[in-house]
Amino acid sequence: MTTKTSLLKVILLGDGGVGKSSIMNRYVTNKFDAHLFHTIGVEFLNKDLEVDGHQVTLQIWDTAGQERFRSLRTPFYRGSDCCLLTFSVDDNQSFLNLGNWKKEFIYYADVKEPEKFPFVVLGNKVDVTERQVSTEEAQQWCQENGDYPYYETSAKDATNVAVAFEEAVRRVLAMDERTDHLIPTDTVKLHRKPRSAATCCS
């Protein structure tokens, strides 16, 4: 069981500026850069970790939050094993938009059973003193929307970032155990987006 390494694709979604890229960078390289520019399209990093005896390679996909990048990011939702819905606790609008992000994800990722899909909710920037979203509000939203785990994180001072990703992995593994298989990295995902017109090279 532990000899196989699973590749898990998790995707960070949320409004522009809530700190998705910073969370990814904090987790993978343990660095924080206050001057990152807007992500254009998608980016990703891999990280190997062990959770409860399972070796996994986490492929973390960071996406552009701005509306104008929608067409660039949505093709990459497919095949995700877990979705991290992210908002910033000092930005109420980003919290209100969580529902839209969830909808967008379910639509473009073509999730078959949305009610069972593992979402994790992250309230980032807890280092900021002026909060606009209380912990209770956020927890309530999570409860009402499918009992999602909720983590308050800070990419800036590394609060809860690793914990949140590990929880994401646990959720995915729990799902997989229910469906009783692990996807080894060397298999081909048949449900990935077909390459259309692949034979036509002109």
Binding site: N25, K31, T39, G41, F44, L45, S196, A197, C200
Partner: peptide, 23 residues
């Protein structure tokens, strides 16, 4: 290396999946 890796990964994924338009 670290400041460019994620973006390069992403750019590669984008460019690789570009479908040649209707010829």
């Amino acid at each position: 290396y670290h400041s460019s890796l994620a973006a390069l990964n992403g750019l590669e994924a984008h460019l690789r999946t570009i479908i040649p338009g209707p010829p």
